[in-house]
């Protein structure tokens, strides 16, 4: 059951990848990459349940934080032209 849910999530992130590749503005691409990143967190949690390896939960938690900070930093870079 976990494997099927993970396959559905990967399928929906492939659909969102279309918008990340062919987005007309840069903000569409940032939004689609943010969505794909949070779906990756979900796949990492499901991998923990499929393979019975509890280390993947820590990776998922760290990846969620990195995804959020990356989105904010990228937007600040677009908006101000620098990160200082």
């Amino acid at each position: 059951m976990f494997l099927q849910v993970a396959l559905v999530i990967v399928f929906s992130s492939i659909i969102a990848l279309y918008r990340a590749i062919s987005g007309p503005t840069i903000y569409d691409r940032v939004l689609a990459v943010n969505v794909i990143g949070t779906k990756t967190v979900l796949v990492l949690v499901l991998v923990e349940f499929i393979y019975e390896r509890p280390e993947f939960l820590d990776i998922a938690l760290v990846y969620a934080i990195i995804n959020f900070i990356g989105t904010i930093a990228f937007l600040k870079y677009i908006e101000k032209g620098g990160l200082t």
Binding site: T25, L31, N34, F68, T71, I72, I78
Partner: peptide, 30 residues
């Protein structure tokens, strides 16, 4: 394990709408 997953839910509920709001604000300001 379920406590850790609960923290992931809590973080997603805070961070995901905040990131969307930041993207919207940046697009509106440009």
């Amino acid at each position: 394990i379920s406590i850790k997953i609960f923290f992931i839910i809590l973080f997603i509920f805070i961070a995901n709408p905040t990131a969307t709001h930041a993207v919207a604000k940046a697009a509106f300001l440009s």
